[in-house]
Nucleic acid binder design. Structure first.
Lengths: 271, 271
DNA sequence: CGACACCTTGAAGAGGTTCAAGAAATGTGG
DNA sequence: CCACATTTCTTGAACCTCTTCAAGGTGTCG
């Protein structure tokens, strides 16, 4: 929300390891990709992203009870899948996800990329089962928030109730933006908008405004943007030729945010 | 939800007029497109679409207090606009709307078409102002539901609370579907999916499974589907040539729902 | 009835896709 | 730690879908 605030969060796997040394004794037997840890929101550094502000200590303590459990997800495995029963929303603590939907005939579409502090699983509410897959693009950890508990508590904590509504509304507005992108933008505009969006969200989490590491493949970017992976690659190359970005595999350095903005806003010639 | 139930609702302007003869004394001074009427959900024939089921009489009466006011919107005018303060959600009683978002440089994108029983305005919750325009494509009437009252009441009526969550989740899932369409389908597939969706929703409201009247222009369809109006027109013509539909301007008769389904599911040859 | 909005159709052109090949990075197992 | 397999990325060339531009037709409303 307020882009000036810098929240020191580790996103890259190495930083995460440093912050949580070896993350306790992870027994492969108990749960390969669903290890659970008891935690608390009240001292979580992501609170400003996940939770409403201005809660009393009492209210925070009650929310701690709702967000009772954490779960680790290995890179490449799913947090939930299309068709699975919906019970909980998930707040991403660390890591990076994609969500994607599929048709019966096998086509699929990435509907979003989610990072620390963002909430996933909202699609499952309407029919009590999920309608998309959530796949971890790097080792991740989420807070599990049973939805019936959220509903229960948000009847009593007005700020939480409104917060839930805002999160869902924000997702609707975000998707409007994606529809605009998919419906009316050309390849360069789409990729420029994508990069600006990513770097803006990363910056809100304390990362650089100009450098980022893509956690997804060209194909996944293409799926999200309604383009083929070759087109994504070519467009990256064009940006490099034009001196707008530097690209080394998944490492991207933005040399001119202004140029990207001009591309998105379709201002063709404007030296 | 249950497609078998037939809810007798008037959608076409003439039927609407018959149902509410001359709609009282509409003074242009008071409010050109915001005439208000006191109403009640408890005897509304759209209740099954708008409201949770299994409410007690007491709960229904309290909801009547929330949905206190109706508003008429003339064809072509807006229910709300991008930038306007958000105060209420709207349940469509009669008529047909489009919602659209726009970029600074003038491009715009239709994000949805809404008909009787559907809720619009959810985009406004997150930032307390609307981020899209809602335009009536035919004379319409909506129930005004102040959102603070909805939140208040849904703290007390669990079924209402969950219903609000489901409505928002449903919108998120719907938009996933549109993203899939925009991101991975070809023109014919998009138009086929569009027609099937429209006729399915109309059928759920008691209309024909095979005949429909488009309330929007080719350009608006194109905007929604990420196509130019000429492409929409050409694709209609192709469907006519193939004997899949009959088209007379905005009157469409579906001759083979099965063929449309095959097109959407990309089953090229399958006699 | 004339003005205007909407729709259809044709022809040329652009943008993105498809197919293909090779390079670079990453992961795996010996 | 290195060799090999695999995945991911880049680039080229031909092709195809959709767009653009243009003209004319149809329908609607004051």
């Amino acid at each position: 929300m307020s882009p000036s605030q810098r929240i020191p969060i580790a996103l890259s796997p190495s930083d995460t390891d440093a912050a949580e040394p070896s993350s306790g004794k992870q027994s492969p037997q108990t749960a390969v990709n669903a290890q659970t840890i008891k935690v608390a929101c009240s001292n979580c550094n992501l609170r400003e992203l996940c939770m409403p502000v201005g809660l009393t200590d009492e209210q925070l303590r009650r929310i701690d009870d709702v967000v009772a459990v954490r779960r680790k997800i290995k890179r490449g495995s799913t947090l939930f899948r299309n068709g699975e029963a919906f019970t909980s929303l998930f707040a991403i603590r660390t890591g990076f996800f994609k969500t994607c939907v599929a048709t019966e005939d096998g086509r699929d579409q990435v509907t979003g990329f989610q990072m620390a502090g963002e909430i996933i699983g909202l699609d499952g509410i309407v029919n009590d089962h999920h309608t998309c897959d959530a796949v971890a693009l790097e080792d991740a950890e989420v807070c599990v928030m049973p939805f019936d508990r959220i509903e229960e508590l948000s009847r009593e904590v007005n700020a939480l109730q409104h917060h839930v509504h805002k999160i869902m509304s924000r997702e609707i507005v975000r998707e409007h933006g994606v529809m605009l992108l998919l419906g009316s933008m050309r390849a360069e505009e789409r990729l420029a908008a994508f990069l600006l969006n990513l770097v803006q969200r990363l910056h809100a989490r304390g990362f650089s405004q100009s450098e980022l590491v893509l956690r997804m493949t060209r194909e996944e970017i293409g799926s999200y943007l309604g383009l083929k992976l070759e087109t994504v690659s070519r467009t990256f190359s064009k940006f490099v030729d034009d001196g707008i970005v530097e690209v080394k595999q998944r490492h991207v350095r933005i040399l001119s945010t202004e140029a990207l903005r001009r591309i998105v806003n379709n201002q063709a010639a404007c030296h």
